[in-house]
Design a binder for these strands. Structure first.
Lengths: 249, 249
DNA sequence: GCATAACTATAACAAATGTTTCAATGTCGG
DNA sequence: CCGACATTGAAACATTTGTTATAGTTATGC
């Protein structure tokens, strides 16, 4: 895990772009963001950034790659509770209270910026930035609720369809889509641990979506061929993301 | 829905008790809490306190009864994302951002205190109170994650067992338990909408827990007869609640 | 205190999802 | 370019959970 030269290039990218979607940021806010990082690491896939029981401080920002929050059962079963995609900042203020009750790990190679506690306080002293971070946190919580809906009341195919729609909106917000397609660099096993199924059933269900002409997957590239039908089948209503509705173009 | 005489008796009870578990409160904090309520209502079961799409402000506190956060599918299927039990305060700051992306409704008759936006700002200007509310909010988010684990990676029986353990800890924190029993005034249908199953399967699974001698239900009263085994089967680790471990007495 | 509705319990059957296994394909370091 | 290893695809069968139906039981309004 090598520490790359800082300078804030990482934070100025997707993180800035994401927060701009939630709050009108000034030049000075962007500059503060760029200054705050305490070093950017390139972390290989399958690495824990934080373990359950750690007592972390400050913040982490993902600027490249996919990471996730997860917990394990004693038998090794894993449940993913959240994806951290480029632009996502995760507050480690759990330390206000106690120790991490879940782990954060990479699903792919990730570029990760660390923000020290002092720097994180500086950021929050800028009202526009604080507002952006606060709103992002509220949306993260709304996503947790929607995932509960997904797990509790949607079928296997619907769960996957819903997840793909959500990721389209989130990836678009950081400029990582092209039309209705984006890179989804994770395995079917990861998808299974996200949607509470087995990888076998994920495979079945993906095949179903593919045969229905709703999605296409070439390597890591996922294309939502018929977004309108996909959204309809998943009853995807993006209001919980507090961004614009994707046009079904 | 009649508005009862205020005076803060409601807020001084379970809400105060809950927050004291998270932060050392002074007399003045308790007084501020008692003063803040803008009226307490007695709300019948099955009533929405807030609907999806509303633009609410201020805070709500439940001082008696069970309420929940929920969403509906178009076919009428309901998923409950959180229980609001006595002492729980729910921040309506979603208004910072936009409209409610879920509804809040009563599961039983509830006593509900409303805290106006100005009063809520007053509360937050008291550091100890602000800390207590913040920690309570962090725990609420941790509960959402644990519920995702529950839905995704536990069997029907385990899900119920885990929920009952969680509620024991939360009810104990507001003094509503007696040994390992407490009032769980909700129906099997509510439990089904919580755990992502059908009421038939909830009934089957409750029977299984009962026959195994793990729980007993007399009317609304739930007793966890063998807490140690119940915790073990559900792999219940209460760290995410950030309170003391219940002794398996 | 009765009539009604809501809730609990249970059965028989259907559908969805999990388990195990194996082959085909892709990826990556030397 | 090869070999090892991870990933995808898929079949056969097992298990869990959902569906529909019906009867008993408890709460509730009048």
């Amino acid at each position: 895990m090598k520490v790359l030269p800082g300078g804030g290039a990482a934070m100025s990218g997707p993180v800035l772009r994401k927060l701009q979607g939630f709050s009108r940021l000034e030049e000075a806010d962007a500059a503060a963001l760029a200054m705050c990082e305490a070093g950017t690491r390139l972390v290989p896939a399958g690495t824990d950034l934080i373990r359950e029981g750690d007592r972390p401080e400050g913040m982490l920002a993902i600027t490249e790659g996919f990471a996730c929050r997860y917990k394990l059962r004693e038998n090794g079963a894993r449940q993913i509770m959240a994806y951290l995609i480029p632009g996502d900042v995760c507050d480690l203020d759990i330390s206000v209270l106690n120790r991490m009750d879940h782990a954060i790990g990479t699903l792919t190679t990730c570029r990760v910026a660390r923000i020290a506690p002092e720097a994180s306080r500086d950021l929050r002293s800028r009202p526009a930035l604080a507002r952006g971070l606060h709103r992002a946190a509220i949306v993260d919580e709304a996503i947790l609720r929607e995932w509960i809906m997904n797990l509790g009341r949607r079928s296997a195919v619907e769960r996957l369809a819903h997840l793909f729609c959500e990721l389209l909106v989130r990836m678009r917000a950081v400029g990582l889509t092209c039309g209705n397609s984006y890179d989804l660099p994770i395995t079917q096993l990861d998808l299974a641990d996200t949607t509470g199924m087995t990888s076998v059933h994920v495979n079945r269900s993906l095949g179903e979506l593919r045969r229905a002409g709703l999605i296409e997957r070439k390597g890591k590239r996922l294309t939502l061929c018929d977004l309108a039908r996909l959204m309809e089948m998943a009853e995807f209503r993006p209001n919980y993301l507090h961004r614009e509705m994707p046009t079904a173009a």
